[in-house]
Design a protein around this nucleic acid. Structure first.
Lengths: 78, 78
DNA sequence: ATGTTGTACAACGGATGCGTTGTAATTGAA
DNA sequence: TTCAATTACAACGCATCCGTTGTACAACAT
């Protein structure tokens, strides 16, 4: 799996979960002390987030870290 | 969960898996195009690895990314 | 028209990832 | 003893993360 695809898939998965939760980029960002722009770049696959960043996002989305990480798109019970 | 503890737990989990596989830091590092020192710092919890780095480590250890990520120490079937 | 909300894109800059080199302590074998 | 293998730690430096600011555009409301 090449890097670019990996990051784009991660971003798409985060966006999907966020939309299911019905919250905006700004709301998610502020809940974890970040800016809307940071979340936008993350969802666009433009950054390669650190492990700690991912754990913060998981907390903001109120999901387990494993849900964010999964490479397949099987997020049925979000 | 604070950052330092999170990283130390991650490093310990990676070390545990690597030891169970019976390979050295140098072998793991070289299998993914890195140096022994990089793996040492990762296992020591001194760095906050990126998502892509984690996926490389998972490939090198031949485990799923979810196994690396889990916050509890329940790695029975490695 | 104006204002609000959600999202997107770009530039600046401090902080950090992490590859690399060098060094050293430990262990075990020859 | 000498040698190799493993692990650990520190410093240098380039690349990147990512916080921040500014801007823009579409959709919707007033």
């Amino acid at each position: 799996m090449e890097k670019e695809t990996l990051l784009k898939n991660l971003g798409a998965r985060i966006r999907e979960i966020r939309n299911k939760k019905g919250i905006s980029q700004k709301q998610l960002a502020h809940s974890i002390g970040k800016d809307q722009q940071s979340v936008q770049r993350l969802e666009a696959g433009n950054i390669n987030p650190t492990y700690y960043y991912l754990s913060e996002i998981a907390d903001g989305l109120e999901v387990d870290l494993e849900v964010l990480i999964k490479r397949d798109g099987a997020n049925s019970n979000v």
